[in-house]
């Protein structure tokens, strides 16, 4: 069993990992903004509901959330599950969970914008929406890049939890190769893949941070 074929097997699983990673980011970021706005809403019921949601999403294991999303259609509604539902369930589970974390990070970013700017915008005749999108949002983005990078890197590694609902990603493939060969090597190869992927992510986020650093 050559080293190359180990790498080859793991590259196959790497595609799945990147797929979960990419679509989770795509869905959870906008959802996170929605969560943050709902969390800061002055409309009490929405605010409270969001607080409860975030508390549950952060307070229970992601693995459990994935299992709940995947099996709920059957156990609650009696819908027979199909294999393709695994992908949706994984994406829903990951996106909603990460949206909760992103939501709180975005909230911190939004609230860090001084009240004076809201007042100035009002004086200048900006509407609430204009104030948010033209003044608050850009500053929020600048501020949240470092904590968002943290979450993004965590997400790369968290993708390995998708196997809780039998969605085989890179780490699962590595474990399967390891079992087939009775060898520990594939796990380290997978580790190298994660590390390299995260270096790339950190580098890209560093670039983003720098490009947003337009006042210094």
């Amino acid at each position: 069993m050559g080293f190359m074929s180990i790498v080859q097997q793991i590259i196959g699983g790497f595609g799945t990992t990147v797929f979960i990673f990419f679509f989770t980011l795509l869905f959870s970021m906008p959802l996170g903004i929605l969560f943050a706005l709902a969390r800061m809403s002055r409309f009490k019921p929405l605010n409270l509901l969001m607080q409860v949601c975030i508390s549950i999403l952060r307070g229970t294991p992601l693995m459990l959330q994935l299992i709940v999303v995947f099996f709920m259609p059957y156990y609650v509604f009696g819908i027979k599950l199909t294999t393709s539902w695994r992908v949706y369930a994984a994406l829903i589970g990951f996106s909603v969970n990460y949206a909760a974390y992103f939501g709180e990070i975005f909230r911190a970013g939004i609230q860090a914008v001084p009240v004076g700017q809201h007042e100035a915008a009002e004086v200048l005749g900006f509407t609430k929406a204009q104030t948010f999108w033209k003044i608050v949002f850009p500053q929020m983005v600048k501020r949240v890049v470092p904590p968002v990078t943290n979450e993004v890197i965590t997400l790369v590694k968290d993708t390995s939890m998708a196997f809780a609902i039998a969605y085989a990603e890179m780490f699962t493939m590595a474990k399967q190769v390891a079992a087939a060969q009775s060898n520990i090597m594939p796990l380290f190869v997978a580790g190298v893949f994660y590390y390299v992927f995260n270096i790339v992510v950190a580098w890209i986020m560093g670039k983003v941070e720098k490009s947003l650093d337009y006042f210094q």
Binding site: L34, L37, A38, S41, R42, F43, P45, L46, L49, M50, C53, V68, V69, M72, P73, V76, F77, I79, W85, Y88, I92, G93, V96
Partner: peptide, 18 residues
């Protein structure tokens, strides 16, 4: 705000029915 609340509830349910 109400709409958002509604969507959130729908979103919660969206996890259930495919």
């Amino acid at each position: 705000a109400m709409l958002l609340t509604g969507m959130l509830c729908a979103g919660l349910l969206a996890g259930c029915g495919s």
